[in-house]
Design a protein around this nucleic acid. Sequence first.
DNA 1: CGGAATCCCTCCCGATACTG
DNA 2: CAGTATCGGGAGGGATTCCG
Lengths: 123, 123
Amino acid sequence: MRLPVRRAAEVCPVEVAVSILGGTWKLTLVKHLTAGPLRFGQLGRRVPAANRKTLTRALRELEEDGVVHRDVHAEVPPRVEYSLTALGGTLAPIVEAMDSWGADYAARLAADPLQGRGSSRSA
Amino acid sequence: MRLPVRRAAEVCPVEVAVSILGGTWKLTLVKHLTAGPLRFGQLGRRVPAANRKTLTRALRELEEDGVVHRDVHAEVPPRVEYSLTALGGTLAPIVEAMDSWGADYAARLAADPLQGRGSSRSA
DNA sequence: CGGAATCCCTCCCGATACTG
DNA sequence: CAGTATCGGGAGGGATTCCG
């Protein structure tokens, strides 16, 4: 992962998407932002498993890739709002498809523990 | 990435999909397999950037996650065919959506170099 | 031909603490 | 509140070599 986008494009367009969206939490962040702009802290509360540093980096990379817009309000206390760009908005179908696929997969796991350890490593 | 699927499910279903499909080359492999079964060597030729070890591991993990089926023919020389499972087949819309999104993104990059270095690290 | 084994190295992601 | 600085572990991924 994290191939340079241009290299990824030479191999296969799907890898472009993966290289941009494949990082942990990134698609989750995009998903939450499809409902509207959110502040940094609000995003953090919606993804408690990600710490601030990780969150910041993910958002920065999404911003660099043109998916997310960062709006800094010069106030005290600071307020930073994140929203999807037009390009980010075009991800909605993908997010929805992957969300429902993932939900199905999780449901299947719960109902049918036989394939339980797939892609699970440590804890 | 590579969160245990069960943990990912607790956070967000999209992360389940990402943890299964987010690995490098994985979606590319699925994409090529949507056209029909392929042998190991054929897959390797379609993804020259991936070496055999990486390819093998990616396929094994996809197999463990129930996306890919591995068919070993007891012959000399050996012949191993990979195909999508029924579950893997349900990925077709996602693959297609991400492929076209990635293609659009790459085209935009080529036409509009201003956002050129997005998500690119070294080479 | 398709893999297993080995070595190695990047960088992803997390925990913690400090700043404006 | 939002972010950076620092530290660190550990997995992901590559190159190479040997095997059946």
